[in-house]
Each structure stands twice: as C-alpha cells, then as structure tokens.
C-alpha cells in the first residue's frame, strides 16, 4: 500500500510518517510538503527515515505535482493546511487559498485517480466555533475564525467525494506533546517550554477558557489505524480531554514549582470550546489512560 501524506513534514505528519514507515504492509510513504514552516527537523533526529519514505517538496496548490503524487497513492492523508494560532484571523484569503481551494485541488486529483481509494481529511474542532456546551458530531458547525471557516469549506470538498471514495473527516482538537517537529504556537507546548526555560508562562485573559486537547501520539496512532480500518466512519471528533488554560498552568507548577504565571488582559473572558469524547475514536485507539500530570512530566523530562 502506498500512502501520501500532504503536509507530511509537519507536526502530525512527522509522527505519522515515523509510525507508517515501520509497517511491513506499507510500500511507500510519500511526504508531500512545501516546508513553509521551515520544518527541517523532519529530516533530523535519531530515528533515520526509512528508504520507503519519499519526500516531495511541493505546495498543495501545485496541481500538476499533486496530481502525479495522488495517482501513485492508495490512500491520502490530507494534513496540509495554513494554520496560525491563537489568532487564526490573519488573512481570510490566504486561509481560503490553502485550506479551501487546496483541498479542492486534492479532491479533484483524487476523484480522477482510479488508484486512490481512501481520503482522510484532517479538519479541526475549530469548525464548531465556540460555546458553553460540549460539542459532539451532531452539533452544527459555526466557525468563528477565518481558519475555522476555511477548514469547514475544505470538509465540503471531501464530503463531495463520499459516494466515490472512502472519505473520513477528522475534527481534531488542539494537539500537544513532544515531537521533533512540535509547534510552539500550541498552548501546552509553549507552556512546557516557557516553564522549563523562562520559569514563567504567559496567560491571555483570565485563564478559565476551556479548550479540547489531544496528544500527538494518539493522533498519529489514530491516523495509522484509520488508514487500515475496515470500519472507517465518515466523521470523527478526535479529542482526549478538555482543560482550562489555568488547569494546564497549575499542573505544570506541580511539576516545576518555580513556575510563575503572568496574566495579560486578565479581565477578559476568552472564547472556549469543549468537545465530547467520540466513542468511535475510543474504538480505534482505546480510552486514554495517562493523566495530564503524568503526561506533562514525561514531556518536560524529554526537553533539553
């Protein structure tokens, strides 16, 4: 089986690639990425990239190269996206280019390929917008950021192929956890770095905003299993647990007691989003057993 991972040299792609290359039932893992985030770490680290990993440096809007690569794949995991957090409202058009029209290009290539049978589209819990109630798969999407709007538009392109291909849309919570390609604009990762190396974390607003989180290892395990699942669902909410920003900061303080919290605009109540667990996720990768504290301790120990 040949797998194409768009955005494959990013945070999730790196971890997924390291898993997939160990499988004997996979012939090729094609990592398609334009390295727009300058993530050369993908090529570093103690784990050597297996010879079955092919790297293609191209952007998702390079329709010509994309089509060629999709034609060689049995399954596409579409991770390529323009993402900026926490302020996902930078330029509506740039989000639209990559997340909406880039997905349209991918779906067009997949539709025209007789080989490509399965498409997994990594969407975001951001499509739900925000609210007090925990969202679930029946909650109507109501995105509040340009990023969320563009990811939802991307979903519509993938959904269109549902009668022709096996399509699954994964609405993913905020990802965190150690990886050579980890992103430090993700709140937990940034907090661990700052707590360890600055002794202080900065919290925007009052810190009581709750968000849904999922560990990077569980995301990559989930995607690996989904690629091979005989019972792939059309949609998943991929989340581990909801935490307030204060929960995370105070848990870190347990581990690194010297940590200070600096609140900025602490009169502000920031928007929150919580996601109910999805039993179809548990069916694939089991429920999470480790606590946030154990996880953060492990994470902190891995840092230099």
């Amino acid at each position: 089986m040949n797998i194409l991972i768009t955005g494959g040299a990013g945070y999730l792609g790196t971890e997924l690639c390291l898993r997939l290359m160990q499988r004997t039932d996979i012939e090729t893992v094609t990592v398609y990425d334009n390295l727009s985030r300058k993530n050369f770490n993908f090529f570093l680290g103690p784990e050597k990239l297996d010879s079955k990993v092919r790297f293609v440096e191209a952007e998702i809007l390079d329709s010509y190269t994309l089509e060629k690569e999709v034609n060689k794949a049995d399954c596409v995991v579409h991770l390529a996206a323009k993402v900026t957090t926490p302020f996902a409202d930078e330029s509506a058009h740039l989000f639209d280019q990559v997340n909406n029209w880039g997905t349209a290009e991918l779906c067009r290539a997949a539709e025209n390929s007789s080989r490509c049978k399965r498409i997994i589209y990594m969407s975001s819990a951001g499509v739900y917008g925000s609210g007090e109630e925990a969202v679930n798969l029946t909650t109507p999407p109501n995105p509040k950021t340009f990023y969320g709007i563009s990811k939802l538009k991307g979903e519509r392109h993938a959904e269109r192929l549902a009668g022709k291909k096996e399509v699954s849309i994964v609405r993913c919570a905020n990802v965190y956890g150690y990886s050579k390609s980890m992103r430090f604009d993700a709140v937990i990762n940034r907090f661990v770095l700052h707590a360890r190396h600055h002794g202080r974390v900065t919290i925007n607003g009052d810190g009581d905003q709750k968000r849904a989180f999922v560990h990077v290892d569980r995301v990559s395990l989930f995607l690996e299993r989904l690629i091979f699942s005989a019972n792939m669902q059309p949609r998943y909410n991929l989340t581990d647990a909801d935490h307030t920003v204060n929960d995370i900061a105070y848990t870190l303080k347990e581990i690194l007691p010297e940590t200070e919290m600096l609140y900025v605009d602490q009169q502000l109540k920031l928007r929150q989003i919580t996601v109910a667990p999805d039993r179809n996720v548990d069916a694939l990768i089991g429920a999470k057993e480790i606590t946030l504290e154990e996880e953060l301790r492990e994470f902190s120990d891995k840092m230099a």
Partner: peptide, 20 residues
C-alpha cells in the same frame, strides 16, 4: 476540463489568486 496552469501559478504579485 481544466486549465493546464496549476493553481500555484495563478497568483498575482501579492500572492493572492487572480480573482482578487
């Protein structure tokens, strides 16, 4: 039928699609 010009080559000097 589609254009043979890939979408990444359909951007103006600002990097936006020509329809903008």
């Amino acid at each position: 039928i589609s254009s043979s010009v890939p979408k990444h080559l359909q951007r103006d000097a600002k990097g936006n699609f020509y329809f903008t």
